[in-house]
């Protein structure tokens, strides 16, 4: 066969294959979303937000699980994000090129992709064994540890994007670095840091594995942080694998709620970032 023709054919084959690969990827996302919407909408009703998780064989809602998830995610962010932001500040402002920072950056990237079930085991050993029982605070702690690497990474990246001139101007006015960081750098990098927070919330609000043996689950309404607390992911896990129709329907409804929440958070994080970039572009 003509060599030129063969090269063209080969080129065509691979390009078609890459198109097919992209189609498959998009089809998977579409299939998952379609399944969630079609199964989840059937279970949607006001009862979800007004009633507790039911015993087997009867109907109910997800109120205690929604509440528990919200409380533990919020606590996780409140504990984890300040640590992440401060540590990111250190890496970007104080120890930019030190050996310690290089090590911390590396360890942080490892933590960022470490299996979350390992973090669950760690908090189990650290908190649950010492206290002698499962608790919401242990669950929140596990989520906090998962939130730290995300906020650290974005904070450092965003602080590095602040123009050096702003920092120099502040220093020229006689401000110490702490004052510069709080009054100049943080406001300048605000939307970037908010993006990091949104991403961290998205990351931890769907986590199941680390909650299995820290917060466990609770069939009843509980606001006690020192006791097991219901949460959406673990309820979905238990109910989906149960043989009861009512429970499975609730699991699908919960899955829809959690996915929509997380996708909205991820999209808004991207929108904030895009706005930031547009602002930068216009300012220049």
């Amino acid at each position: 066969m003509n060599r030129r023709l063969w090269r063209k054919i080969k080129n065509g084959i691979f390009l078609v294959l890459s198109l097919i690969a992209t189609m498959i990827g998009l089809a998977c996302l579409a299939a998952i979303l379609w399944t969630l919407v079609s199964h989840g909408l059937a279970g949607m009703s006001w009862h979800l937000f007004t009633q507790m998780t039911p015993p087997p064989g009867s109907s109910g809602g997800l109120l205690n699980a929604l509440y528990g998830s919200a409380v533990m995610t919020l606590l996780g962010i409140l504990i984890g994000s300040p640590i992440g932001v401060l540590a990111g500040t250190y890496l970007a402002e104080y120890g930019r090129n030190s050996r310690l920072s290089t090590v911390i950056r590396f360890i942080n990237d490892v933590l960022l992709s470490a299996p979350s079930i390992i973090i669950g085991l760690f908090v189990y050993e650290l908190v649950v064994v010492r206290m002698g029982h499962f608790s919401a605070i242990a669950g929140a702690l596990a989520l906090a540890i998962l939130a730290i690497p995300v906020t650290l990474r974005t904070t450092e990246d965003m602080l590095n994007l602040v123009p050096v001139g702003m920092k120099d101007s502040s220093a020229a006015l006689g401000a110490y670095p702490w004052r510069t960081t709080l009054s100049v750098l943080y406001p300048a990098a605000r939307s970037g840091i908010v993006t990091g927070l949104l991403l961290a919330i998205a990351r931890i609000s769907g986590e199941t594995a680390p909650l299995l043996f820290t917060a466990l689950n609770n069939q009843f309404w509980s606001t006690n942080l020192n006791a097991p607390m219901a949460n959406l992911p673990v309820v979905i896990f238990q109910f989906a694998l149960s043989p009861y129709k009512d429970w499975q329907d609730l699991a699908w409804a919960g899955a829809l709620i959690i996915t929509v929440t997380i996708l909205l958070l991820s999209i808004s994080a991207r929108v904030v970032l895009a706005m930031l970039q547009a602002e930068r572009g216009a300012g220049r």
């Binding site: 998952i32 399944t35 989906a240 699908w252 996708l263």
Partner: peptide, 10 residues
């Protein structure tokens, strides 16, 4: 960004 439990149930 889809949480892993969703992949599991799907």
């Amino acid at each position: 960004a889809v949480p892993s439990i969703i992949f599991g149930i799907w």
